[in-house]
Amino acid sequence: MSAATSRTYGILAEFETPADVMHAAEQVRDAGYKKWDVHTPFPVHGMDQAMGLKNSVVGYFTFVGGATGLTLGMSMIWFMNKFDYAIVVGGKPLFSPLYAFPVSYELTILLGAFATLFGMFALNRLPRLHHPLLKHPRFRGATHDKFYIVIECVDSNYSGVETKALLEKAGGKHIEMVEE
């Protein structure tokens, strides 16, 4: 089980405490790995920095979605009330960004929220029906009292011997391969 095959997903190391896994994560980060993750039963503050995670780009999806919603709302109301079927309501102008604003604003929020949700799905590659880690017997501890680091075999830095040695040095226990 030492060599990585095409059927191998990655290598799993178990840690006992949040502090252990955090220090180990710093070492994995510094070793330059990109395709790896930490699994903990609860959020661990400071883990983002320890893993070297950057701010998510999902905000750009939100912005584009919101801007689209605002433009769409304004142009829809302009088209309906001024261009296609001009009708005077309450002595107000046929089109004014003022009365069009509440509806456009709602569309800004709606499309912004959709873009956020689906942008997040796209970035996370969700939904997926199965993940190799879920059938690994030891991984159940991740929802109870154990902390894990998983490094994927597809990472360019991955090497069966060196990665295992790194995790051992970082204090990982029960270092095991995860089958695809």
């Binding site: 955090m22 710093e26 503050h45 400071g46 883990m47 920095q49 320890a50």
Partner: peptide, 8 residues
């Protein structure tokens, strides 16, 4: 601590 980086 990891958050030291952001404090400095």
């Amino acid at each position: 601590m990891a958050s030291q980086g952001s404090i400095q």
